[in-house]
Nucleic acid binder design. Sequence first.
DNA 1: CTAAATGCAAAATCTTTGCAGCCTC
DNA 2: GAGGCTGCAAAGATTTTGCATTTAG
Lengths: 130, 130
Amino acid sequence: MTVQKIGKRRTQQREAVLSILQETVGPLSINDIHDLATEYCPDIGIATVYRTIKLLLETDQVVQVILPDGIGRYELPDAAPHQHFLCEECGRAFDLDLGKVSWSKSSFKRKGFRVEDQELCLLGSCPDCR
Amino acid sequence: MTVQKIGKRRTQQREAVLSILQETVGPLSINDIHDLATEYCPDIGIATVYRTIKLLLETDQVVQVILPDGIGRYELPDAAPHQHFLCEECGRAFDLDLGKVSWSKSSFKRKGFRVEDQELCLLGSCPDCR
DNA sequence: CTAAATGCAAAATCTTTGCAGCCTC
DNA sequence: GAGGCTGCAAAGATTTTGCATTTAG
């Protein structure tokens, strides 16, 4: 595992947040991270989670994902572009790799939009909720 | 124009919100709606906008859209499924019709996800910002 | 007139910030 | 030790709610 640099000091709280992000597949909300971190650091405060995530975002060690439920979630940057699945029943988010997503470029490109990125999210029920 | 039913009474404020949604192409935030509504009803309060939108959502007269910037926006229900474009410079959202969006179903369907909907948002610069 | 709807301000959330004490280095 | 980091609590920001007043029907 790569030695991560978070801020200037290595603390239990930051180790916990980073471990959780590394061990989990799929994006996690601040509350998810805080709940999980509590098992490593029982007294970790939510403010520390916010601060740690902000720090990780600023140093590009974490990526923010906002899915159609409006909840901000965080995951490690992934080399491959990917998509997400949001379970409308339990609210959990999953990473997907759908390969190339294609659509008809013709209908709007001429109107002067410059596309730099795209986000695709599928919604429905996850395996556990079916 | 169809006669809309909002709650039990037809008020200037509700007429204003509905007119704005009808006259605008693309989804609008609560603040957008409030700012625009002020021109019809100078004293309309933001709480009334929240309440009116909530009422319209509950009666399926309006649809909520949350794009990757996390801001909730509202638009009239559209018969045709469509996508959105979010300008990363000015923050405005636009409706798009990209026709059929396709991706490789094979990679996750067998794992037990049931897909009921999908949201595609393109990001970049709008014609005004280029 | 009656009661639904509004505006205001207070309450409820969620996120950020200030600060005294703790803990890395 | 010095100063970065933390937890707590206060401050902001956003959305919802309670209530007296206004207003549609």
